[in-house]
């Protein structure tokens, strides 16, 4: 059985963020990058399944060459090979385009089971894995906290407010993983060295029979801004009615909170 795990290299959420002067992109030079934490759980779940039942685990990512960094981590954890969708046209895709490219990549591998983190912690869109399921006409369950394989059926738990669902899905299926499901292992140093020999294949959009134009975003990014951080102190003088009036005026006119 082949298992594909969709992983993404994202900025560590502890990094200090800055927006480039164009107000349309994040300044990346001072960011520390990691594998999106939910994806680590997805990789761990795939490796556990491989250890229990035997499987080929292929990690799939889309991005620049640097995305290989997190793919190597996954290979060192125990995945068998990597497939990176990269090159012209891959840097400007939105969730829709990324999903189409990754769906084509998953299809090219012939994976019966697809794991992914429940969302990537950079844009938190929670779109890609679900779209991949739709595009490949696979069954799908999201935010899964327990996974078992029972013959050709996946039995999963989804946490909901005050309880949980148990769902059965026929394979092939796409499962997105919540963090409580397992504890991702540290790559051992021997496995880090062994991962050196594991292949990471590269494919362009053209290799997958796609074109940048066809994947053109349906969403246009207007501008990015950081949450407002500056705290301003107003000390309002006067008697109580005057102060209340002034407070209302400030909230309305300056803070635009009312």
């Amino acid at each position: 059985m082949k298992i594909a795990v969709l992983i993404k290299r994202v900025p560590d959420t502890a990094s200090v963020f800055a927006i480039n002067p164009d107000q349309k992109s994040v300044a990346t030079d001072k960011l520390k990058f990691v594998m999106s934490p939910y994806d680590e759980h997805a990789v761990e779940e795939a490796i556990k399944l491989k250890e229990a039942n035997g499987a080929d685990v292929v990690v799939v990512s889309l991005g620049p060459d640097s995305a290989k960094e997190v793919m190597r981590t996954a290979l060192a954890m125990g995945a068998d090979e990597g497939l990176l969708v990269t090159g012209a046209g891959t840097d400007s895709l939105t969730s829709k385009g990324v999903a189409e490219a990754l769906a084509a990549a998953v299809k090219s591998i012939g994976a019966e089971l697809v794991f992914a983190g429940k969302q990537a912690v950079d844009d938190d869109a929670s779109q890609v894995a679900e779209r991949v399921a739709e595009l490949l006409e696979m069954a799908h369950a999201s935010v899964v906290t327990k996974f078992e394989l029972n013959g050709g059926t996946a039995v999963v738990n989804r946490e909901i407010e005050g309880g949980s669902y148990t769902l059965e899905l026929p394979l092939p299926a796409v499962i997105t993983i919540e963090k409580g499901i397992n504890t991702p292992r540290y790559p051992t140093l021997p496995n880090i060295m062994k991962a050196k020999k594991k292949p990471i294949a590269e494919k362009s959009l053209a290799d997958l029979g796609l074109s940048a134009e066809a994947l053109a975003p349906g969403v246009v990014l207007e501008s990015l801004s950081l949450p407002r951080q500056n705290r301003r102190n107003h000390i309002i003088d006067g008697d109580t009615p005057a102060r209340v009036n002034e407070l209302i005026r400030l909230l309305k006119e300056e803070e635009k909170a009312l």
Binding site: R72, Y186, A195, K196
Partner: peptide, 16 residues
Amino acid sequence: LTPEHEEIRRTVIKFV
């Protein structure tokens, strides 16, 4: 340094 060096660095820092 090779990518393996960097992977070891990341693993050790995470362990720490």
